[in-house]
Write a protein that binds this DNA or RNA. Structure first.
Lengths: 210, 210
DNA sequence: TCGATTATCAATCAACTGATTGATTTAATT
DNA sequence: AATTAAATCAATCAGTTGATTGATAATCGA
């Protein structure tokens, strides 16, 4: 209730946003194959002409959805896991928690990501938005793995780059295959056993500082 | 040249098949979003009405493509790898070779699989064809991993079910992300290091019988 | 209060799309 | 050669789809 005055008609930015969210919902529900500008306008409670007032073409609207998706993936994460004192382990558990979080709380996000990823194969504008998302994610994983190796928590012979490629591929595939929670957990258990240094099985909160 | 006589007009089955292949090609090129019965008919060099003579609906045609895809995945594999005497290792290398094979020689197959997988989320008929493909694949991986553990080639603490889920997810994600060959190789190196028993690094052809 | 800008909608367009119809051609059978 | 069945096509239909137009209503600055 701070600055914005209540208005009968939404301001331009709000309407624009509501159209993007409506398109997002339509995309999650029916995919690109079933995405119709009319459905989006209806869902937003607006005439088609109004949609085209904010987005000159369907393509522009889709671009807006891609931007929205990217912002959501940056914003939305599982609640931070309780720190154990070991950064690499914390990061690992945070990654697991995030995966569960998206799968359980925001399945739409994963669905739309799949749609946009597929679309990105033929649409450079979409690719330009979606690809960096993965690049950034994978690079973060790579640094995390390298840190874990440096800290002595992860196995010495682990290749951070290859490990990151494997991890990102596996998480992408899991989202794609829409694995159940038990299946996800089984994967995480294997990943954990794979990452951890065989000698130093960390039982409880072993403090390790870099 | 054994039985079939040359004919000016293709027999029913042949035309049907050529329509499915045309639809497959269209799907690989433009995805479901751009799949048009007219394009398929054109590509097959046939009138739309003829298409509908063989496939009453677009949906039926898509079903035909799904069946075709499944048959292709059963039929097409990389040339068998040279046996090392260890079945589990051979199987592993065959899996790696297959992944490279599909990526390099049959990218269309992977593309159409992605399209159909996505479609399967909303189309039960497609799901019924595509899902067993993954189920069968994953179960085969699971048995392979279990065998490798039993043979003492793979690490004792490996969970075959979780490992199979991870492997299938990773391969699916890799196909989805269309990783380059070096990236695939990096993943395979990590998987190999992850699978192999730490103690018994199998140098050459150690014969192990179950 | 008034003019200008912004926002919205009903109506409509032209092109597209899956599917059908009825006639015609080709192949197999008698 | 005559008959029948299978296969193909030109033309067309009814409904959809992205986008536009011109009129109208709401909002804001002066």
């Amino acid at each position: 209730m701070a600055a914005r005055k209540k208005q009968a008609r939404p301001r331009g930015d709000e309407r624009r946003d509501s159209l993007v969210r409506a398109a997002f919902a339509c995309l999650a529900a029916d995919g690109f194959e079933g995405l119709r500008t009319r459905s989006v306008a209806d869902r937003a409670g607006v005439n088609i002409a109004t949609l085209h007032y904010y987005f000159p073409t369907k393509e522009a609207l889709i671009g807006g959805v891609a931007d929205f998706l990217a912002s959501q993936f940056i914003t939305l994460h599982a609640p931070p896991v309780a720190p154990t004192g070991c950064a690499a382990l914390d990061r690992m558990h945070q990654e697991f928690a995030d995966a569960h979080f998206y799968s359980a709380e925001h399945p739409d996000l994963a669905a739309v990501l799949c749609e946009l990823q597929l679309r990105g194969r033929r649409d450079p504008a979409i690719r330009k938005i979606i690809e960096p998302l993965f690049g950034h994610w994978q690079y973060g994983i790579e640094r995390w793995l390298a840190d874990g190796v440096a800290e002595g928590v992860f196995r010495r012979d682990l290749d951070p780059a290859g490990g990151a490629a494997l991890f990102v591929s596996a998480m992408t595939g899991a989202g794609w295959l829409r694995l159940s929670r038990p299946q996800l957990d089984a994967i995480f258990a294997v990943v954990e056993a794979w990452l951890l240094a065989p000698a130093a099985m960390p039982a409880t909160g072993r403090k390790i500082k870099a």
